[in-house]
Design a protein around this nucleic acid. Sequence first.
DNA 1: TATTCCCGCCAAGGG
DNA 2: CCCTTGGCGGGAATA
Length: 362
Amino acid sequence: MALPLPSPSPAASGSTTYCRKQKSLGLLCSNFLSLYNRDGVETVGLDEAAARLGVERRRIYDIVNVLESVGVLVRKAKNTYYWKGMGAIPKALEQLKISDDDEDERFSNHSASFQDKVDLDSMHKASGSFKSENRKEKSLGLLTKNFLKLFLCTTSDMLSLEDAAKILLGDARNPSLTRTKVRRLYDIANVLSSMNFIEKIHHPETRKPAFRWLGMKGQTDSEMGTAHALVHKESKKRTFGTELTNICFKRNKLVSPIDVDIIEDIKPLHPQRECAPIKCNTDRCSSDQVPERFGPPAPVCIPKSCDEESNEVKKSRDWESLASTYRPQYHNQALRDLFVHYMDAWKSWYSEVAEMDPIQVI
DNA sequence: TATTCCCGCCAAGGG
DNA sequence: CCCTTGGCGGGAATA
């Protein structure tokens, strides 16, 4: 099936400019959301999603897993998910703040207060033996939840993935483990970013890249929400009549014709153009007509050009009035403890593992 | 060079 | 045993 050719010479003819950004999980997530976030959708087929979005199934699993962690999707059956929508997010987050690792089929006998649990689970002695149950605990979904908890149960809203990895990992000493964890966190961070949960920034002092929690602020006011809703209504209409896809380039070349087949009528246009804009098919999605090219203002935004990472127009979008139902409750005893727990762990690991300047946890 | 993170191999899981 | 899931880390693209 897949050509085993390693294709060692990237430069070669090089005309088929491959653009990483167009293949990002973040963009895929945006497209996914645009595709399903509309009335009438109540179930999502993974195969269908993969085909319509023009990506391999493997990638769908990635975003589906984090979307599930946030409540947008709920597993229905093999290959099928229930679409819960953006409206399910507030409740899901609220639950994250409270519950210990919920839903995991095996309940903990050790009735330790969840502060012990939360990430002692994932923390669980990587140094020791590898159990098979181990797999679940390393899932993207769980990692997503724990990553979110870091923000939800903490006052610190800035965090580097490296730190997050060390905190969520039991063993901060193992650089290899950490590296892998960080890779996963990048995946997660990308989709969370595309949903505006977080935002990438550079730490004021350290200069180090990090992520800042955006949560659902700025939309707290019901009036505000309404206003936004109105504004978005328009762009949405335009967007939703659209079929989206990630353009199919392999790392160094175009996708094989077979793949293109699967993607029904989605073909890469302007192969040699660097970062060709996403294509929109207008055939099946009824009502409004849309331009064949895609504009920036829509929920799904693609940087006009790769090298020119313009200040994205990514504004607070979609989950408009989610906030109206959301209300923070910081005054929770247990959460307090959790917070302390995290910070202690973080600090101690930091002093051990890093000899750089003593990070100050705000 | 350092950071980011896509790709797809291949093993675990479910039927 | 076959097909769905999805951990994992090499290494290429970007900053």
